[in-house]
């Protein structure tokens, strides 16, 4: 076989395997740095920290988690997020409805509302540290109507609501844009029919808009929930550091503290696994809800 022919056959083999060559780098990175760590972490959560490093400890880490007031608090705060979720979906939903109905200035509103969604949580948190300071603008504004001052970030009963409020401020534009994309696929003749029938705005929303947008609404519910569970770290880190009195912990912040500050990686892995299960439940709920409505329409 001549050198030329050998080169040709090498080239042919290179060509035959082209799909694998193209996919390989991406798949290798994803497997090595996303899927493999997931298995490692679950495995890791059944081993010990410190003196018991590496030895199997069964469910000890999980038991410790359940007894840790900080972790309990973080789960309670997850519950609070779930309770506030309808609000975080309804606000952008209502605003998108009015923008879709071409309220005067709707173009300006659209671009202004979406703007905070592109800012880093760190920047949002830093800005709100200024806004919410005890002698800051918000308390000054409240003072003019005789309310307050409120210790927004220093009162354990208030701080978590404050942070969630800021999170909603920072992300409602994202949901708004998704809603508007949903409206683009809405059948306008339905709205016209409702208008001809003289239906009020409230009835139009309830009987026409909500049923037509059910898929979009579910999507926003799930993405907002996932966003609350996985993208509030920056806010917590900058605004409260989990305080006051550990009242603003979320699982992701707890994981960070146990890993980074307390040198308890195995305990942190157990918390990670719990967070993953919560996320899976949210994801599976979405799939089952989508299936049900998919079957209906």
């Amino acid at each position: 076989m001549g050198a030329g022919a050998r080169r040709a056959s090498l080239g042919a083999r290179f060509e035959r395997h082209a799909p694998y060559v193209l996919v390989a780098p991406a798949v290798l990175i994803i497997v090595a740095l996303r899927l493999w760590p997931l298995l490692l972490g679950v495995n890791f959560s059944f081993t010990g920290d410190g003196e018991r490093n590496g030895s199997a400890v069964g469910f000890d880490n999980y038991l410790e988690l359940l007894q840790d007031p900080l972790f309990q608090g973080s789960l309670r705060n997850v519950g609070l997020l779930v309770l506030l979720l309808p609000l975080a979906v309804a606000i952008p939903g209502m605003l998108a409805t009015f923008i879709y109905l071409r309220v005067p200035g709707h173009r300006v509103f659209r671009s202004v509302y979406f703007f905070p969604a592109v800012l880093s949580p760190v920047i949002v948190g830093a800005i709100f540290n200024l806004m919410l300071a005890f002698d800051g603008p918000l308390n000054a504004l409240l003072g003019t109507v005789g309310v307050g001052p409120v210790d927004w970030l220093g009162d354990p009963d208030v701080a978590m609501f404050t942070v969630v409020g800021v999170q909603i401020w920072a992300t409602f534009g994202m949901a708004l844009v998704v809603f508007l994309a949903g409206f683009a696929s809405l059948d306008a003749t339905l709205l016209d029919a409702a208008r001809v029938d003289g239906a009020s705005l409230a009835r139009t929303i309830w009987h026409v808009i909500i049923p037509s947008l059910s898929r979009t609404i579910q999507f926003v519910f799930v993405t907002t929930m996932i966003g609350m569970l996985t993208s509030m770290f920056g806010l917590l880190y900058v605004m409260t550091s989990g305080g006051p009195e550990g009242s603003t912990y979320l699982p992701e912040y707890y994981i960070w503290i146990q890993q980074g500050q307390m040198n308890r990686p195995a305990l942190a892995s157990a918390a990670s696994t719990v967070l993953f299960v919560i996320m899976l439940v949210v994801g599976l709920l979405q799939i089952s809800v989508l299936r049900r409505t998919g079957g209906r329409t």
């Binding site: 090595a32 760590p37 997931l38 996985t230 890993q259 942190a268 990670s272 994801g283």
Partner: peptide, 16 residues
């Protein structure tokens, strides 16, 4: 991998 948030894998990833 879209379903795996960073928080869930950050401890073992740091080790890797």
């Amino acid at each position: 991998a879209l379903l795996i948030p960073f928080q869930v894998i950050m401890v073992p990833l740091a080790r890797v």
